[in-house]
Amino acid sequence: MRSLPRSVQVFLLALTVLLAFYPVFGEMLVGDRYDYWLQKLTSVMILAIMAVSLDLLVGVTGMVSIAHAAFFGLAGYTMVMVAPEWDAGSIWILLPAAVLAAALAALVMGVLIIRTHGIFFIMATIAFSQMIYYIFHDSDFAGGSDGTYLFGAPTVELFGRELLNLSDRVTLFYVTLVSLLLVYLLLRTMLRAPFGRVLFGIKENEERVRAMGYNPLYYKLVAFVIGGTLAGFAGVLSATQYQFIDPSQVNWHLSAEVLIMVILGGLGTLWGPILGAFAFEGLHYWFSSMTRYWELPMGVVVILMVLVLPKGIAGGVMWVADKLERRPSQKVQREETAAGRPMEVKHD
């Protein structure tokens, strides 16, 4: 993973700052829709955590998984089941329990399917996630098809003192924003480390990776578990936000939507899929305000995007950045070589 051009870094930082200040200027901007958009942005950031963690599998390692929602929903259900029925549970119990459940599910699923490739891998992930879906849909223990409620957002206390109030919407907004940034930075660090180089290698030429002395299965399995665990983490945030969970959050439809976010945003870039989540949800909002059949125009947009911008939004941003930085031409090139950039592995 090579470092990004300066102008792209600035662009992404500006977007982050803009987002971070929404609670400050949002009221001026959207008036009494402020609260709606605060929640909307929070939920989009949660989806962005899903998307960036799915990119680790799909964009980086080349494993197209349609099981991501299974880990997301499983974590939410675990929270509901572990929490007391008539009281808010403690985050120190709920978070580890939920994330661990997602990690374990990813490990079990991974062990069973990691040897398959291509379409067989995709089918196996769908099959597994639908199994989990029907467990929650058809049995009574978690509300069946109606779903079930969490009694209040988890408490965050240390020695009896409340550190954060997660039912406060602004607090949750910032907790989610910081989570998204941390997940992004964590994955970026991993991709710059030896682990990431092997994953990029597997996507490009798994046979050669094996011939050079690595067992690709272990690396793929670990990537799969990391991705599933992070999806579970997103599930915790989501269950905290809505305090409600139903089988639709385990369904492969959600997985497929997140996959579209990743493709829309730009495979293997990490930051692209985050933008992809915002773009997808923005279009979703816009189209569904016009028609009940929002999937239709969405499908057209996705097809057009893939044709016009095969590297997604990230590809488009990189293209613009390239144009911008080329203009004062030679200077930039000299800087690049002087900074020894080539040592930073791999981009797109």
Binding site: T189, M190, R192, A193, P194, F195, G196, R197, V198, M212, G213, Y214, Y218, Y219, V222, M343, E344, V345
Partner: peptide, 16 residues
Amino acid sequence: AQSRLGNSFRFFLPAS
């Protein structure tokens, strides 16, 4: 060359 590290489950230090 990195394959000679024994394993590449090294997540934090940049490869370089």
